[in-house]
């Protein structure tokens, strides 16, 4: 589904990703763990199409489609979803308005008509209820006055509505207490499907207690330096990243 080959990317001429390879198959959950500064968030932004980054070498395809040939909104329409580490606040754009704009934009990109408003409202209510998102929150400006946990739940709500093929979760656990972590994880687990894949980026193992990965990767200095099963996450939790920082530096 997602195929990244020898990816090099830099920001302001500073190389961050240095030859990253990653293959994710439908239905799989891949965890990418690594120390701060290893390039985890850069990977998510580069995939999503943020302008600040320059891809200098390599390729990334989603179901064979060249992601780098598409603008950010086209990548989303092609089925890529990035759950932000720090979801942005947009005062004045009601959450509901934003959700509707996103859902309909993607429908239009697929050549489908807009979803009729009553049907859309029903769909949102359904998904929002499961995530404990109140109708009051949906009326408020996007993420405005939302707690850290509410913002992350809102990300999962968007994911649920947009039904992407590939979900990239960038440090979704950061800033979450244990209860919020549970709600968010349950939201993610509910979306697991045989034709949908996840790339879960995290610094800590605790998120992986809730979202069980099939494959765990260790990222350091802009590359995947080790790949293993779920047990790798536990090993990292016990021993830290010191080995990998050293290994990549050496």
């Amino acid at each position: 589904m997602l195929s990244i080959k020898n990816l090099h990317a830099s920001i302001e001429d500073k190389p961050i990703l240095r030859g990253l390879d990653l293959e994710v198959k439908p239905g799989e959950v891949h965890a990418i763990m690594g120390p701060n500064g290893s390039g985890k968030s850069t990977l998510s932004y580069v995939l999503a199409g943020k302008d600040d980054y320059e891809v200098t070498e390599g390729s990334a395809t989603l179901d064979g489609q060249d992601l780098f040939a598409l603008a950010a909104d086209e990548r989303a329409a092609a089925g890529l979803f990035l759950a932000f580490q720090y979801p942005l606040e947009i005062p004045g754009v009601a959450t509901m308005t934003f959700l509707k704009a996103a859902v309909n934009a993607q429908r239009r990109a697929r050549g489908e008509g807009d979803l009729p408003t009553p049907q859309f409202m029903k769909l949102v209510r359904e998904k929002a209820d499961g995530l404990g998102i109140s109708s009051d929150m949906l009326k408020r400006g996007l993420n405005v006055g939302f707690s850290g946990g509410e913002k992350k739940r809102n990300e999962i709500l968007q994911m649920a509505l947009l039904e992407p093929k590939l979900c990239v979760l960038d440090e979704t656990d950061s800033g979450l207490d244990i209860d919020a972590l549970k709600v968010v994880s349950e939201g993610v687990n509910a979306l697991r499907a045989k034709d949908r894949a996840f790339v879960v980026i995290t610094h800590y193992q605790r998120l992986l207690d809730h979202i069980a990965p099939d494959v765990v990767h260790v990222m350091a200095k802009g590359r995947i330096v080790r790949t293993g099963g779920p047990e790798l996450a536990h090993e990292l939790e016990a021993r830290g990243y010191a080995d990998y920082v050293g290994e990549a530096a050496a």
Binding site: K50, D73, L88, I90, T97, A101, A102
Partner: peptide, 29 residues
């Protein structure tokens, strides 16, 4: 704000429409 525009685009909202939402938000206040 480019960061906000990117957030909207990352959800599939095209550039012009994202700009329109932002301007609406700006005057909406």
């Amino acid at each position: 704000d480019d960061e906000l525009l990117f957030y909207l685009k990352s959800r599939g909202i095209p550039q012009k429409e994202a700009e329109a939402l932002m301007v609406q938000a700006f005057v909406g206040e």
